[in-house]
Amino acid sequence: MHMHRLEKWWLVFGISMLAIFLLVLGTATFAMGVTPPGEHRHTVNPETVTQNEPFDKPGLRQVGDNEYEAVILAFVFGYSPDRIELPVGAKVNFVLTSTDVVHGFHIIGTNVNMMAVPGEVNHTSYTFKEPGEYLVLCNEYCGAAHEQMQMRIIVK
């Protein structure tokens, strides 16, 4: 099958760029720990999740020097807790699930953006370097009052 000389160059160039791009993404993911959220499987029963550890007491728990675990429940149409206060520079490990339908969890102005799926627990970490009142919103349609579903993270 004949391929034009210029087309060969074009494809070699394009495919090389693609390979470099994927290499950068892969290196970031597997060597530098910049993974998408939820790296391991951790299941819970959405009907009984509020009776068991750790989701029986959603909220903030200090786990180290300016490091916290935030256990968060998403439900129609809100989050528990609906407000978290943190000192500047706090690293937070988010642990998230849903008690009903699928929800989103997007902290505006950050790269924390993950799904709350009933039956699964999602995880991600973020360090809040800037003070402010962060808006957290549900970005997966979840029902009639989806646009009201929100919480706040106050960093002082």
Partner: peptide, 23 residues
């Protein structure tokens, strides 16, 4: 990609396959 329950390896493998359609 932003969901729990799927390991980063399988996510990344499908990201690579996704980019094959660029060719």
């Amino acid at each position: 990609l932003m969901e729990p329950g799927i390991s980063p390896f399988w996510k990344f493998l499908q990201v690579i396959l996704t980019f094959m359609v660029i060719v």
